[in-house]
């Protein structure tokens, strides 16, 4: 599964895309250097975790992949596209192939689950339908089957704000899935959830990775979740990659290197049961 062969097949929907960062640096307007010269390649269909403390740059890294944060220098490539430098319609088109879920779920709380999920179809809408906000029969079909996949179909008319945290994250996953994406980004998807729900959502991501064959890049700050659900782990500290290797083999010393301090009990979520 090398970069080149996957990139050619990349145009077809629902096939995994590779991600490549080449010497990427991000400096925010206030002068903070969030990423310093990061280069890495993630193969199509891989499930990779990015581990680091808050402020280590992992949120910036994940947002550089879909262009939510513009890079200061270097290039970001996803599938056949170079994200860095794109803007406007072209950037939205690429983003349509990249699903993303967030720590805070980021649903419109006063709006029902159905319309929140249809947001995932926006990038596919034609000019007129986009203007009127009317989904096609195919859009409806895709959104509903995504809700079905995460087991939220019976809540389709419920206002998103009245759901529990775990349910909201499932709707957010359905929203991302209804894009029929080639890459799934997850920014601290379980940090706002209680342990059992956190494990359920991580399993969901794992299942998406294997069943839908998607590249999954997930930010985590907890060491045991990274070890348990992902095979490869990237450690970030102060905007630099300090670890890149198999997650299962990462030692306590490796984690202390990533965190820049000794391991504390709150660095682990605890077991599934």
């Amino acid at each position: 599964m090398t970069l080149d062969t996957r990139a050619e097949a990349g145009a077809a929907p629902a096939s995994a895309w590779p991600i490549r960062l080449d010497g990427v640096s991000v400096t925010y307007p206030n002068g903070t250097a969030a990423l310093r010269d990061v280069s890495l390649t993630i193969d199509a269909g891989e499930m990779v975790s990015v581990v680091g403390l808050s402020g280590s740059g992992k949120s910036t890294l994940i947002r550089a992949v879909n262009g939510l944060v513009p890079v200061t220098s270097g290039t970001v490539t996803v599938g056949p596209y170079t994200v860095s430098g794109l803007s406007g319609r072209r950037l939205r088109q690429v983003r349509g192939h990249i699903g993303m879920i967030f720590q805070g779920f980021n649903l419109a709380t006063r709006i029902d689950v159905y319309r929140n999920t249809l947001v995932g179809r926006f990038a596919q809408a034609g000019a007129l339908r986009g203007l009127l906000g009317v989904p096609t029969a195919h859009d409806r079909e895709v959104a509903l089957s995504a809700l079905h996949t995460v087991g939220m179909l019976d809540k389709v008319w419920t206002r998103a704000g009245s759901l529990s945290g775990g349910q909201q994250q499932r709707v957010a996953i359905a929203r991302a899935l209804s894009q029929e994406p080639s890459i799934m980004l997850a920014d601290e998807p379980v940090a706002s959830l209680d342990p059992p729900t956190a494990h359920a959502v991580m399993s969901e991501l794992e299942r998406i990775n294997t069943e839908r064959y998607l590249t999954v890049l997930v930010n985590l700050h907890l060491m045991d979740l990274a070890r348990q659900y992902t095979r490869r782990m990237i450690g970030l500290r102060a905007g630099e990659v300090v670890y890149d290797g198999p997650a299962a083999e990462a030692t306590e010393a490796d984690f202390e290197q990533i965190y820049g301090r000794r391991i504390r009990p709150q660095d682990r979520l605890g077991d599934r049961t």
Binding site: N66, L68, L91, R92, M100, G104, V119, F122
Partner: peptide, 13 residues
């Protein structure tokens, strides 16, 4: 408005 970021990430205008 957290939903704005999510919709932008999904390629919405």
């Amino acid at each position: 408005h957290p939903y704005l970021e999510a919709a932008r990430a999904g390629g919405a205008t």
